[in-house]
Each structure stands twice: as structure tokens, then as C-alpha cells.
Amino acid sequence: MKTRALLACLGLLALASDARAADKPLTIAIYAPNAPFDSGTERFAFINRLAQQVTSAAGVPAVGKAFARFSDLEAAIKSKQVDFAVIDGVYLAQKGVPYQVLATATTGGETSPKWALFSSTASRVDELQGKRLSIANAGPRDAEFASNALFDGEVQIAKFFASKAGAPDLAAAIAAVNLKKADAVFAPEAQGKGLKKLFEVRDRVPNPAFCEVGSGLASDLVAKVKAAVLAHGAAGPGLDGWKASSAEPYRALAGRMGSRVRRPVMVEPEVVRIEDQDVLVPPAMEPGLPELKTLYWQPTQ
């Protein structure tokens, strides 16, 4: 009796799940504070257009949802309110790339723009010592991102700068420098208009990624959605398209965020060589001579 009841419950659950899949639209979220959007409105419009694209191109109803804090996004994912998400590249690297990356957004056709350090007041990096660094709050390891990934481990921002001015997004961080509320900001090179570029970051920083964050999504559905996203060419402003991608560039960025330890170098000792040229005494070896018997001229028959 108990078993029958359990089976009945499981059957109801399955039905409910199927019904949800059939009726409920997909939720595509966005959390991308380092993306080059001028405002939250622009970011929200972007995700809605993307959801429409998925709806029309993949034939799957979808809705867009924007998040301003990573903790909200994480909570929504945890509570299965989100199926796909456009996730900030820096944040994704800081989290160790826990989601399946399907595509990377492009800016000016590139998936990983060059970043640089901009200032409105200083003309050299060392002039910034003791000044304020503006930075978009993306995740829990933003300082490591700045010190190690952007400054290549050469500058520990906590020591070098007097303070770090956190901003909700990149536009706000840049605006803080423009408004002299801060002295410097790291941003993609295209975003530093009107500011002085002091330092070019050696390695590029990947743009936001389109990730599959929901669990149990059918593979054909994921494929349809991915295809629809990749086909979403005129996605801008800010992000202008998508390219198929993987977790690799985000993992590389995560690697660069680690602190640098410079290990002293040993001198490889020279080996002691045998300088003498004639070391061996070769034995006497007699050359062989072919048998002569074979040269006997046998009279032919």
C-alpha cells in the first residue's frame, strides 16, 4: 500500500515536472557588472532582447531577468529560478567556472578585449601610490583580480592604493574617475575615453559568458538555445554578438588571479669533463677478406 502511494507520488511529480517544462518559459538571467553597459536599463534591455531571440529562433519561450548582485544571482540559481545566464567573466573566473560555458559575448567582434589602467589625474603609475582605485564590484576576489591578473602581481592594490572605491558596475567605476571621486580605474581599452591610459594589462580579460546554469535541461533544448544565442548578432549596445566558447579563457583568468611567488634561481654547476682526446686504446682488428673459392671458374656444360 505504502509502495503504491510512493509510486503515485513520483508519478505526480513527473507529471508536474513535464507540465512545468511545457508551460513555464525559460529564464535567462544576466549578471555582468564588468560588461560595457552604460546603465542598468541597457543591461535589462539586452537580456530581454536575448530572451526574445531564444523564443523566436529556438521556438522556446524565454524571459529575461537582470541581477545587480552576485549573491542574488547565486540564490536564484540555487532555487532553480534561472535556466541560462549571461555571467560576468571576472566573476565567473573568481568562482572557478562552475557552469557550462556555451558562448562568450563579443565587443567590437572580440571575445577578450584588452584592459588598461586609466586615470584622470596621474600621468604615471607611481603617481597613483596612496590614491583611490575605482573598481566594479564583481565578486569576492576583486582585489586579487586587480593585483595579480591586472597588475601582474607587481602591485598589491591594498598596499599601493590608499583605498578601493567599489562601484556597482564598470560604467559607475569609470564615472567615479571622471567625477574625480577616484583616481584610477581598470577598464576595457574602449571604455577609457577621456581618461589617460597609464598601463596596458598584458593578458586580455574575457567578456561575459552565456552559461547553462539550470540543471536537468534537455540537451536538444540546450543546443537550440545555444544556436539561437550564437545567431543573436545585433545584440548591442555594449555587447554586440556571441561566439561559441568554453570554460578555458575563464579558467586561465582564474589562474592569473593567484598571487605571484618568485623563487630564487640556482646556478647549474658545470660538469667536470674528460678533456683527454685519446682515452681508449683500440684493439687490433683485422679486416675480412672475401672467400676466393667463389671465383673458381666452373666450366659450363
Binding site: 603609475v125 601582474d152 607587481e154 602591485v155 596596458e200 598584458r202 618568485r262
Partner: peptide, 19 residues
């Protein structure tokens, strides 16, 4: 004449940072 693997990088970054 030292040939440490990352020496060139270190110098490059420092030079760009500190002119």
C-alpha cells in the same frame, strides 16, 4: 646572461608600470 623563464616578463611589466 641569466635565462630565467619569466625574467623578461617581469622586466616588461615593471618597465610599463614604472616607466
Amino acid at each position: 646572461g641569466v635565462h630565467a623563464p619569466k625574467l623578461a616578463e617581469w622586466i616588461d611589466v615593471k618597465e610599463r608600470l614604472f616607466g
